[in-house]
Amino acid sequence: MSSFVFEILTLQKAFLREEVSFVIAPGQEGQFEILANHAPYVFALKPGPLRLRLPDGKDRYVAVGTGFLCVQKDRTTVLTRSAEQPHEIDKARAERAKQRAEERLANKTGVIDVARAQAALARALARLKVVEYRPVE
């Protein structure tokens, strides 16, 4: 299978740059799979697990925040507010965050709070998914 250059950029650092066979990204309109030679494309990401298949057949997972994925001729770029590898994720903390967000959503206190809690919940779920995927390798 042909491969292409895939990179993840955050404001803090160039997070990742790999040769990959395919990428499955959490688009706002659902999961989106990108193979080599995809047409130029831009779409919005929501917080979630991003899966990339390395040329040797191994999979890697990264938890990404809101952002974009941009397919260009020579490379594919993800721009995101946050990106974390499985070993960087604190599972207990993500679980606490998930619980907190769920509680807040259960007893709604204001419009802004709901949006914030939903965003927090999405982030926590993304992290948990990525952490739990790890044994798959």
């Binding site: 404001l11 688009g27 706002q28 309109e29 989106f32 047409a39 130029p40 494309y41 831009v42 779409f43 919005a44 809101t66 952002g67 974009f68 260009q72 001729k73 721009l79 507010r81």
Partner: peptide, 27 residues
């Protein structure tokens, strides 16, 4: 020159792009 396709449409994409860009400028 590359003509892009968008998802969702350009307008909604700007909805997320522009605020992020402002944030980046401030950052």
């Amino acid at each position: 020159k590359a003509a892009y396709e968008f998802e969702p449409n350009a307008e909604e994409l700007l909805n997320t792009l522009l605020p992020q860009y402002v944030e980046v400028l401030i950052y």
